[in-house]
Simulated assay, not measured.
Amino acid sequence: MSARRLGSLAACLALALMLLAALAPASSAAEPKSRPPFKVMMVLWRGCEDACRGFQDYLAARHVPVQYFVRHAGTLNLKFPDLVAEARALKVDLVVTWGTTATLGMVGEYDKVDPARHLTDIPTLFMIVTDPVAARVVADLEKPGRNVTGTLVIVPEETQIRAIRSYLPVRRIGIAYNEDEVNAVASVEKVRALGQKMDFEVVAKPVPRDDAGKPVASSLPDVVAALAAEKVDLIYIGSSSFILNNRDVFTRAAVEHGVPVAAAGEVPVVESDALLGLVSRYYTVGQLTGTRAEQILVEGRKPEDIPVEALSRFSLIVNMQVAHKLALYPPLLLMNAIEVIKTDKTAGGAKP
């Protein structure tokens, strides 16, 4: 091979090597590193139940790296100002609250915020809050207007009543409620308004209070007896932390009087003796809340710009053991639509 040809080959080889070097990816030292996990504080009430698990499972399935700081405010009787200070000290990226009590404790009412005691500087996301507008967590569902947003758990009352009446032709609905709870009072008023619209009567009984002004749990069987004496066709558990926390004695007393109970949440049906409920399943609500967390953490959206929304599909659940006790079985036309609950005490509920 001639010297000229060898020189040409060498030049071509050198050019090829230069092109490969230019096209090759940067060295591993220069490659961008994966970001550290997002820091998320979860302020729960009594442990990581279905909504909590749904939230965490969603983010795990989406491969969003998260370091969780889980705090059980109700179980351990933690002080919310201390949790607010801890969230700031940890420099968390997001705070997730479970229930009305924990949410108000962490962020306060929208028009009574104290920056020294409440979060204003860290995005906050709530779930399992019965009525965030009535509780004054946000002023408007479409435009929260603060560093807070979340998801809805309660199915609209009119939709619930229609589902209940497709199961039972009720004309008188009884309600027991705690007058100290804003959500509970608002729920009673909504059902009363629906009674005028949908042609049914509402018999509402406030829970008696003790000398200190606190509702008396031991009075609930008597309240149920009073509702039964007024010939109500059904007792409705709407938005009431007090009734929910005493759901076993309340629903058991109703069954003893032969009165079915319908609930706005899954816990009284799955864990206690309520007959039925048109509900948002907690696990699915947790997943929906996870989508909002992804929008905040990954997409960089601001909570104030994210509407507070509910699931688009609900579950009609029926406790068949209670149906058997009361001899109130689902109509055949509903059998394909209901989710049968056998009361194996495995639901993940708690205080709303």
Rank of each mutant, 00 (worst) to 15 (best):
N336C: 00
G349I: 08
P268Y: 12
I317A: 04
L278K: 08
L311G: 02
L328P: 05
D233A: 06
T291Q: 12
K351C: 08
M320C: 08
M335V: 14
L297V: 09
S239N: 12
L332F: 11
I341E: 12
Y283A: 03
L326R: 10
L311D: 02
T346I: 13
G290S: 10
V270S: 11
S241I: 14
V322W: 01
I235F: 12
R247L: 03
L334S: 08
S312L: 11
D273H: 13
L275Q: 05
Y236L: 11
G277P: 01
R247M: 11
L244M: 11
E304P: 03
S240L: 08
E299M: 13
A347M: 06
T346P: 00
R301S: 02
V318Y: 13
P331K: 07
T291V: 05
S315D: 15
P260C: 03
K231I: 08
F250N: 00
E230T: 02
S241W: 09
E266F: 04
P260D: 02
A337Q: 14
V318Q: 05
K231C: 10
P303L: 06
S239L: 12
L288N: 04
L334H: 01
F314Q: 07
Q287H: 08
A262F: 15
M335S: 07
V298Y: 06
A327R: 14
E299S: 14
L334W: 08
Q295N: 06
A323H: 10
D344L: 12
K231A: 15
E309G: 01
K325H: 09
P268F: 12
V255Y: 00
V322R: 00
I237R: 02
I235G: 03
F314W: 14
D344N: 10
D305F: 09
L244K: 00
V249I: 15
Q287I: 06
P260R: 01
S240Y: 08
I317C: 09
V318A: 07
A263V: 05
K342M: 13
R292Y: 15
L332H: 09
L244Y: 11
G258Y: 06
E339D: 13
N246G: 02
A350H: 12
A337F: 08
D344V: 13
N319R: 06
D273W: 12
V285E: 08
A264F: 05
G258S: 07
I341M: 10
T343E: 06
L311W: 04
V261S: 00
R313V: 15
L275K: 04
V340W: 06
L316A: 10
S272P: 04
L275P: 03
L311F: 06
T291W: 05
K342L: 15
S280C: 07
